[in-house]
Structures are given as C-alpha cells and as structure tokens.
C-alpha cells in the first residue's frame, strides 16, 4: 500500500505543491537531454551512411577531447588546438576508412560492428598512451555558475551546451540538405547499390561521414570534457546515448534531438519524483525502459525509417 502511494499519489502531490521545482527539474532534464543528443548524433551519422552501429563513438569523443586538451597543455591557444584536433580527427577517419572499412566492403554489418569494437579498444589505449591517463581540466571559457529566473534555477553551462548543440544540428542540416556531398550522403544512406551505380564514390562518402562524426565527437568531447574533466570515463557517455537512439531511431538527426529531450526530461523527472519509491538511482535504467516502451508502439523508433520488405 505504501509503495502504491509512493508511485501513484506522492509524486503528483509533490508536483502540485511545488510546480516551480517541477519546472526546474524539467528544464534541467531537457538541457541534459540536449547533451545526450550531441553524443547520439555521431552514431546517427555513421549509421545513416553505412548501416553500421559505430561502437567506437564514445572512444572518438574521448580521443578528440584528449587530443584537444593535450595540445592546449603544450601551450597552444584554443583556436589552434581546435584546428589541429579537427585535422587529426579527419586523418583518423581516413585511416579508419582505408585500414578497417575498405577491406570489409560487402561484408555483413555485424562484421563491421565488430570492427568498430576493435577501433574502440585501439582508440582508448592509443589516446591514453599519447596523452596519459591523468584527469585533465578543460576550460574553454563556458560559464559554470547558476542563474535564477523567477525562482527557477538554471545552470549557465547547460544553456551554453544547448545553444552549441543547436548550432551544430543546424550546420548538419544545411550540410545534408544544401550541399552536393550531403545529398550524395543521403543517396548512399537510402541505397548503396543505387548510389554507386550513378557514380557516387562510396569510399569517399564513408571517409567524409567518419570525419564529420569525428568532429561531432570533438564538440561532444568539449562540452562533456568541460563538465566532467577529460578522462577515460568520458568514453562511457556513449551509454547515455543508447536509449536516445533506441527512442529516436538510428537514422534520424531530428530523432536524436527529440529522443535526447524526451530521455533527458523523462529520466530526471522520474528520478526526482519517483526515485524514492524504488530506492533511488533509477534514472539509468528508467531511460532504457522509457525507450523500450516507445519501441512497443514504434519499433523503428520515433523518427526511424519504417522497413517494408516484400516476401
């Protein structure tokens, strides 16, 4: 009885009594969700172009952030370190395409997926071998202090992160919709064979996609690295992107954004208002449960492409 009250009565009473606090939790969750989306975007890009779930996306985030902060520790200004890191991520994409992906063209997707697991372990070890395993402070000047707007406390850092993520999404939208390469990329995503038959070079497209995913990883690394410090654990944020992908669909950029917002807000509201009923610490599994509930009604995710096959 007590449990039922903690699940079905107390949370709603609490929300009714403290509406401002509910709004604060909701806004905090939405802003955190944007940061999840940032990580999920990298997965979506590569999945769209090649149908491969890139297990190494978290490792790419860590590698990019480690490289950036490592270069800054050598005395380079932020802008120079950024340019060089972008260059390194593009170079990394070219190497991955040449050494790992090209020999596996026409192989089953599961083989490519296994290859990305290999890339994960390589990047985790290689990044730490070059730049060390110490926790590094990354300060790119994003303000960290909270502000209170009409009784609602919001962290400036979260607002900045949301703005940066929003700008990145717009850039990606322009890239996909308005540029020649972007259109070619969408063609590859729709049908590899058809795209190749009209002269779109698959290998070049893959190299570009991995480069863009690397740059998205860098942006995610900057934001999460500024929040947590740059350290091995940064690679684990990929786990926070998985429910976003399940919910939003693996092939949709808007899906990654909307999915992030729903997961972020959902897990925070659940933890704050329903957490005590379950002994606390529910937000991690709640995010996956929420995503799975959506899957029952839309197996391809909210914005994923519905696969119809004739048999």
């Amino acid at each position: 009885m007590e449990f039922l009250q903690a699940v079905f009565v107390d949370p709603f009473v609490s929300i009714y009594e403290y509406p401002l606090f509910f709004i604060e939790v909701l806004i905090g969750g939405l802003l955190t969700g944007v940061m999840y989306s940032l990580v999920a975007l990298g997965f979506v890009l590569i999945f769209k172009a090649s149908g491969v779930f890139n297990f190494a996306q978290g490792a790419m985030v860590l590698f990019a952030a480690l490289t950036l902060v490592g270069l800054m520790e050598y005395g380079l200004p932020l802008w120079a370190a950024l340019i060089i890191t972008v260059g390194i991520m593009v170079l990394l994409a070219l190497v991955i395409e040449r050494v790992v992906l090209r020999p596996l063209v026409n192989q089953e997707h599961i083989i490519l997926f296994m290859a990305t697991i290999g890339i994960t372990f390589f990047l985790d070890g290689f990044g730490q071998m070059i730049w060390g395993s110490d926790v590094k402070l990354l300060d790119v000047g994003i303000p960290q202090d909270p502000i209170e707007i009409k009784g609602v406390l919001i962290n400036k850092f979260d607002i900045w992160a949301a703005v940066i993520a929003g700008m990145l999404v717009m850039l990606l939208a322009v890239f996909f919709q308005r540029t020649r390469v972007g259109r070619a990329l969408r063609a590859v995503a729709d049908d590899h064979q058809a795209a190749m038959s009209v002269g779109i070079p698959l290998k070049t497209i893959w190299a570009i996609v991995w480069s863009v995913a690397g740059i998205v990883g860098l942006v995610a690394g900057i934001i999460w690295g500024s929040k947590l410090g740059v350290q091995f654990s940064l690679a684990l944020i990929a786990l926070k992107a998985l429910p976003v992908l399940i919910l939003g669909g693996f092939t949709s950029v808007p899906g990654a954004i909307i999915g992030g917002l729903i997961i972020g807000a959902g897990e925070k509201v659940a933890e704050v208002f329903w957490g005590s009923a379950f002994g606390g610490a529910i937000e991690d599994w709640f995010a996956y449960m929420l995503a799975l509930v959506f899957l029952v009604f839309r197996p391809q995710g909210l914005f994923g492409e519905k696969i119809i096959e004739r048999v």
């Binding site: 406390l153 926070k240 610490a281």
Partner: peptide
Amino acid sequence: FAVPHPGLEQKATWLKIGRQ
C-alpha cells in the same frame, strides 16, 4: 542518495539535494 556507476550524470540527485 545513491549514484549509479560511474556517476557521469547527477543532475537529478543534486536538484533533489540542493533545491528540495
């Protein structure tokens, strides 16, 4: 207040502590 491993995300925990 329990924080699940590895503790990368604690916003909800700290909203409960600091604001409630």
